[in-house]
C-alpha cells in the first residue's frame, strides 16, 4: 500500500496531511495578518508622528526665516545695538588677520 493510499481511521493520510497543511496555512495567514496589522498600526502612528514633526519643522523653518528677515534684523540691530553696515576699514580677511591682531588698520 502506497503512502497516498494509506488510511488512518478510514481517512486517507494524504487528505489528513492536506487538511493539516490547510489549517497551518490558515493559521499562518491569520497570525501574519494579525501581527502585521498591529505592526502596521504602529508604523502608521510613527509615520503620522514623523509627518507631523516634518510639518512642525517646516513651520519652524518658516518662522525662523520670518524672524530673520534682513530688514527686520537690520532695524533691530540698528535701533537696539546701534549697529551699521560694515565699513571697508572694519573688514577682515584671512590675509590681514595678522594685522588685525597687531591692532593695525586693515585696508
Amino acid at each position: 500500500m502506497s503512502l497516498i493510499d494509506r488510511k488512518i481511521r478510514g481517512f486517507r493520510l494524504i487528505d489528513l496531511v492536506a487538511l493539516g497543511v490547510l489549517a497551518a496555512v490558515i493559521l499562518g495567514v491569520y497570525l501574519a495578518k494579525t501581527i502585521a496589522g498591529r505592526e502596521r498600526a504602529e508604523i502608521a502612528t510613527v509615520e503620522k508622528q514623523i509627518d507631523a514633526e516634518k510639518a512642525r519643522i517646516r513651520l519652524l523653518q518658516a518662522e525662523v526665516a520670518h524672524l530673520e528677515q534682513p530688514a527686520r534684523i537690520e532695524a533691530l540691530s540698528s535701533a537696539h545695538l546701534g549697529m551699521v553696515p560694515v565699513q571697508a576699514r572694519n573688514e577682515a580677511t584671512l590675509d590681514n588677520l595678522g594685522q588685525v591682531a597687531l591692532g593695525k588698520k586693515t585696508p
Binding site: 496555512v25 495567514v29 501574519a32 495578518k33 496589522g37 502596521r40 509615520e47 514623523i50 509627518d51
Partner: peptide
C-alpha cells in the same frame, strides 16, 4: 487558489500603504 489568496493577503498585510501618512 488559497495559496494565491494567502500570498496576496500576506503581501497586503505587510507591504500595504494603507494607513500611512495622513498627518501632512
Amino acid at each position: 487558489a488559497f495559496l494565491v489568496l494567502a500570498v496576496g493577503a500576506t503581501r497586503a498585510a505587510l507591504f500595504s500603504d494603507a494607513g500611512r501618512g495622513g498627518g501632512y
